Computed example of a mutant assay.
Amino acid sequence: TAPRMTVAENLLLAAKRGQKRGLKLRRLKENIPAFKEALEKVNPDLAGKLDLPVDQLSGGQRQALSFVMATYNKPELLLLDEHTAALDPRSSRKLMEATDEQIRAKKITAVMITYHMEDALKYGNRLLVLDHGQISHDYQGQAKQDLTLQDLAALFD
């Protein structure tokens, strides 16, 4: 995000990602309804803050905005590297739920790195455990569904 730019201006940058740009009018106002709709799905509080500079948002709001920007135009691959790590538990839970919903709705291929074992068990259709940069365990399908927090914790003993 660009901290001195508004939420709407940041979203406009995300909307134009990958497109050829030249010197022309930015047409920000005509994009406002689409921006509000995108924000409503992830963090409804943000939809009313489109004119606010990003540096005035809370940490959770910034993370939610970053996620909306990253998924505004469907990416080929979405990398989420502890994207809720700096958030309080409530904000973290809300962003994880919104992340899961958007990934499923848009059918985005995503790789999520997390140290929260509960999230690793709850989200996604595959779980990889790394040990010194190497895959030590690979759980998919029923094997992932059957995995418990105790099973996962035991891998780190």
Rank of each mutant, 00 (worst) to 15 (best):
S66D: 13
Q142W: 02
S66G: 15
V129T: 09
L80V: 07
F67D: 04
D138F: 11
H132S: 14
Y115P: 08
A120R: 13
L79W: 08
L65G: 06
R126S: 05
H137C: 13
D138A: 10
Y139V: 08
P75R: 11
T71S: 15
D131A: 12
T114G: 08
D146M: 14
D88F: 03
I113M: 02
K144D: 08
Q61W: 14
A86D: 02
A70N: 11
L128T: 10
P75C: 10
D81K: 05
H137F: 13
A86P: 00
Q140H: 09
M69F: 04
L79A: 06
T71I: 15
L130C: 13
A105C: 04
V111W: 05
Q142S: 09
S91K: 03
V68L: 11
G141R: 04
M112L: 15
L128W: 12
A120W: 10
A86N: 08
L65I: 11
Q61P: 14
L78D: 02
F67R: 05
Q134H: 14
T84G: 02
D131G: 10
M112I: 07
L130W: 12
K122I: 08
L77M: 11
A120S: 14
A105P: 03
H137I: 10
I108K: 02
Q61L: 14
A143S: 14
G124C: 10
M117R: 13
Y123C: 06
F67V: 06
R104Y: 06
L79G: 05
A120I: 10
Y72C: 09
P75Q: 09
S66Q: 13
E118K: 02
L130T: 12
D138E: 11
R90Q: 13
G59N: 13
A98N: 00
A85Q: 07
Y123Q: 06
D119C: 05
R62L: 07
I113H: 01
D88R: 03
I103S: 07
T99L: 07
H83G: 01
S91C: 07
T84F: 02
G124P: 07
M96W: 00
A85L: 06
D88H: 03
E76A: 14
Q140F: 07
S136P: 03
I135C: 00
L87F: 02
D138M: 11
R126E: 08
H116A: 14
R104W: 06
I108M: 02
E101I: 02
V111N: 05
Y115G: 11
P89C: 00
D119T: 11
D100Y: 07
L121Y: 05
Q142V: 10
I108P: 00
I103R: 06
M117D: 05
I113N: 04
Y123L: 15
H132M: 10
Y115Q: 15
R104I: 12
Y139P: 05
H83D: 01
I108S: 01
R126C: 04
Q140R: 15
Y115M: 13
G124D: 09
S136G: 08
E101M: 11
L77R: 08
A86S: 11
Q145K: 14
L79Y: 08
R126L: 04
S66R: 12
P75K: 10
N125S: 15
S91E: 09
D100P: 03
R90G: 01
P89N: 01
P75N: 09
L130G: 13
K107W: 01
R104S: 12
R90A: 09
M117L: 15
R93V: 00
